[in-house]
Design a protein around this nucleic acid. Structure first.
Lengths: 168, 168
DNA sequence: CAAGATTGAGACCTCAATCTTT
DNA sequence: AAAGATTGAGGTCTCAATCTTG
């Protein structure tokens, strides 16, 4: 029997959750898996309409919202929540598909910009329309604008993103 | 240039999102990535304390909430939102770690039960305590009981889980 | 044939190491 | 050194195919 963390565990009941903790975990589990299912549905809608994997779409959408339709790799990594290694490979797939171009920076020769191609712009637009429709149908409409806004505010106030104020 | 879905795309502005759709997508993106970051933090807390990967913990917790501390494989797959193939491999890792045992069913010889071992029970309990503490610190406390409950209710009402009523 | 479970191949991401530039 | 990007090895999940049982 391999131990996962190498610690020895004592006998007894000290390490078992009580009724209150069980209830809390049940509620969180429902919340967490519910959100995951919902998000998977939305992304599946996008993938079915434009054939774009989640991480690829997220990059395209981010680039589309950018003034120059381009951004340095490390910024994409931050947006995706991926390592820079993983981000490189996402970019590789987008380049192979002809949706993105790599461009060197003029001011800092370490950084590489990922820039939307014209095709990439069109695909990003179509994917954005597909996701917007899915969000409307599956989230905003069943929830109502108010509940959707308060949901958004709730998550924003507990988001551990570095460098954003803890709810004004 | 490879097309991802083989379709030809027309020129023009018809396939570009308007301002309202852009705003909606911005809001959803913030919401989605915020929730992902939060969940990753909680699971990282659990992994740091008991050395248990997310999918492994989810199985252990489910089995712990079960009367007989055991469940058939297809039920674990449903809980995880994984394919049965993926679930088999999660179970393999848990068996290798000595946390779970495989047992044949007496009534249907196609099904295999995954059952917690004594060690698995202890680890599951410790992991549950760790997650409960993390949820309290990172979610319930900053949000307050009311907002947490309404968040839970909101997700529940848009959860596409098969076989649960669409919000009374 | 359908359902439950497993296997192998493939896709996607992470970690550690490396290279270039600052 | 430190930051940005890439590469290769490894882990985790999915899909398609297979096997057994109902």
């Amino acid at each position: 029997v391999e131990e996962l963390d190498g610690t020895t565990r004592q006998e007894g009941t000290a390490l078992r959750p009580n009724a209150e903790e069980i209830a809390l975990l049940r509620e969180w589990t429902v919340l967490q898996s519910g959100f995951r299912r919902l998000n998977d549905q939305l992304l599946a809608d996008v993938e079915a309409k434009v054939g774009l994997a989640p991480s690829s779409f997220q990059v395209l959408w981010f680039l589309l919202t950018t003034p120059e339709r381009s951004a340095p790799m490390y910024q994409l990594a931050q947006t995706l929540g991926f390592s820079t290694a993983g981000t490189t490979k996402v970019a590789d797939r987008l380049v192979d598909a002809g949706l993105v171009e790599r461009r060197p920076s003029r001011t800092d020769r370490r950084v590489i910009f990922a820039a939307l191609t014209e095709t990439g712009r069109q695909v990003a637009g179509a994917a954005a329309l597909a996701l917007a429709a899915a969000v409307r149908d599956r989230v905003v409409e069943p929830l109502g604008n108010e509940h959707f806004a308060s949901l958004s505010a709730a998550i924003g106030s507990v988001d551990p993103r570095p460098g954003h104020p803890p709810c004004g």
